[in-house]
Design a binder for these strands. Structure first.
Lengths: 130, 130
DNA sequence: ACTTGTTAACTACCCAGGTAGTACTATCGT
DNA sequence: ACGATAGTACTACCTGGGTAGTTAACAAGT
């Protein structure tokens, strides 16, 4: 649902800062992303304004500077974005998607056993509720 | 790798036609997508030109009409697009991605056993090669 | 030869992500 | 009181996806 939660790369980076800080001013976000991206402060500020217009963040006046807060959760964004890709590539078939991920990628054995456990667990639960 | 393989929605739809037909003229693609999208023929033609510029299709003159051929495979596109999302959302951690897909979505029990089998198989292979 | 229909080229928009310069304003240190 | 600094607003530009109208070329029917 909602194309509102479809975020670009920079937008995600910004959201990650906001999610981890809870809230942050434009300059704080800028500082947080400086090492990784080296963008101009105005770029961050502009992006934040665009994101507010889109509804994924909101701002409040605190003292004399803006403080931005996330208006969407990481889980929600993940959900929407994964869902969209699942739709586009696998016609919404999540199992096919998972199966693809597992068979077409390197996964070390520790992680494989984790996955095995997870699937087994879910499988068990599935049977209980029926 | 390659942002060339990042396709939009319409582009994917067009590629799907080309992949399944092997090759097709602009109007053939238009006909194939008419029911599902109802777009103007020029829209398809324009998109095909843009896609050629991008390098994902090529055209050849056949008689007096263009015939477009895919220059990228479905597997390649899937790979790139999944990889990009994995990067964006899970820092490239495929196992985390798979784990997310499985735990956060409805998957019926038949598919769960399939997954179980798949993981077990891969796990076994992993051990053999070490 | 003239009209008609198909196809391709060109051009134009809109939208959103991304990037940033410039201008304005308010605050702070001296 | 004044200049430096910080922070925001406005504007602009590029790219790429998506959508389509207009025009030009040409083939074919009558």
């Amino acid at each position: 649902m909602s194309r509102r939660n479809q975020l670009g790369d920079l937008q995600l980076a910004i959201m990650r800062v906001l999610w981890s800080e809870g809230e942050a001013s434009a300059s704080a976000v800028h500082r947080a992303l400086w090492d990784e991206r080296g963008l101009a402060p105005t770029t961050i500020a502009t992006m934040l304004r665009k994101m507010e217009h889109k509804g994924v963040v909101s701002h409040a006046l605190e003292g004399r500077k803006f403080v931005y807060r996330p208006e969407t959760t990481e889980a929600g964004v993940r959900r929407s974005m994964v869902e969209q890709l699942a739709q586009r590539l696998f016609g919404g078939d999540v199992a096919a998607f998972a199966s693809y991920l597992i068979s077409e990628n390197e996964i070390d054995s520790a992680e494989l056993s984790e996955l095995e456990k997870l699937v087994a667990q879910k499988s068990r639960k599935e049977k209980e509720t029926r």
